[in-house]
């Protein structure tokens, strides 16, 4: 992991990020960075602030304090469009699909393809969607059904396809396999590795320790809005991470596992 991580400026630097809702301090002084071709796991129990932190990177929330750098330049995201302009795509936990629209309309929502006259180019959007979905799930049919009629897995596939179709440089995946069966989960894991090898930086929020240890190069653990640990994946084991998630501290006798081995 270190060979890709050290050679250039980080894709994303989130520095000293704060987020307050009224009196609630959801995220306090969290810093994290992400390099091209690396998967960083963002862990923590529900309400630890991990989704909140990622939503600020996606432009879905504004910062109360701190700074985000993309490729070394400071940016200010006022809306999700701003983040997308920098190649930051997000797969939201809620999937963020409009139920009454079909797969193509959802995939291109907000970025519709148009004909010369500015009309919606349905034919091209269907063709592109068909191709994009085929790569993820060869059995994907009912392309023209409203997504409310599709299964959880199919909906998830649309959300993933939308994130990768637009040549993301940074991908935020908020529990991307929550609604998936075993084969689809394996497909998402393969996809994650493929994207990583293409040089895309990935933030992965997950509760599945299996996924985390299989896919991540580094992890950060959040507890009560704070970053309570950032490690290379080889330096920690499952128990260390669970201890951080639950207690917010490492086991007392902890030494970096990577050195011991």
């Amino acid at each position: 992991m270190l060979d890709t991580a050290s050679q250039n400026t980080p894709l994303i630097q989130m520095m000293d990020i704060d987020k307050q809702f009224g009196g609630v301090h959801a995220v306090q002084g969290v810093s994290v960075d992400l390099y091209p071709g690396e998967v960083v796991g963002v862990l923590g129990h529900n309400g630890a602030g991990k989704s909140c932190l990622m939503r600020m990177l996606s432009g879905a929330m504004t910062l109360s304090g701190g700074q985000i750098n993309v490729n070394g330049t400071t940016v200010e995201f006022k809306s999700p469009q701003d983040a997308k302009k920098y190649g930051i795509e997000t797969i939201y936990q809620t999937l963020a699909l409009a139920n009454h629209l079909d797969a193509a309309a959802n995939l291109f929502l907000g970025r519709e393809l148009k004909t010369r006259f500015g009309n919606l180019d349905e034919a091209r959007m269907y063709a592109e969607t068909k191709e994009a979905l085929r790569q993820l799930n060869p059995n994907f049919k009912n392309l023209k059904d409203p997504v409310s009629k599709l299964s959880g897995g199919q909906r998830q596939v649309i959300a993933i396809a939308r994130a990768i179709y637009f040549q993301a440089k940074v991908l935020v995946m908020d529990e991307p396999t929550a609604a998936l069966g075993p084969s689809e989960t394996a497909m998402v894991a393969d996809l994650t590795i493929r994207l990583k090898n293409e040089g895309i930086g990935i933030f992965l929020i997950s509760h599945d320790m299996h996924d985390v240890f299989d896919l991540c190069d580094r992890v950060i653990v959040m507890n009560k809005g704070r970053n309570v640990g950032a490690f290379a994946i080889g330096d920690v084991n499952k128990d260390d991470i669970l201890s951080l998630i639950i207690k917010g501290t490492l086991p007392d006798d902890w030494t970096p596992r990577g050195q011991a081995a």
């Binding site: 996606s58 879905a60 809306s79 999700p80 469009q81 997308k84 997000t90 939201y92 809620t94 999937l95 963020a96 699909l97 409009a98 139920n99 959802n106 929502l109 907000g110 970025r111 939308r162």
Partner: peptide, 9 residues
């Protein structure tokens, strides 16, 4: 889905 629309840009 207003929130989905917003998040989609």
């Amino acid at each position: 889905n207003e929130e989905a629309a917003r998040l989609s840009g």
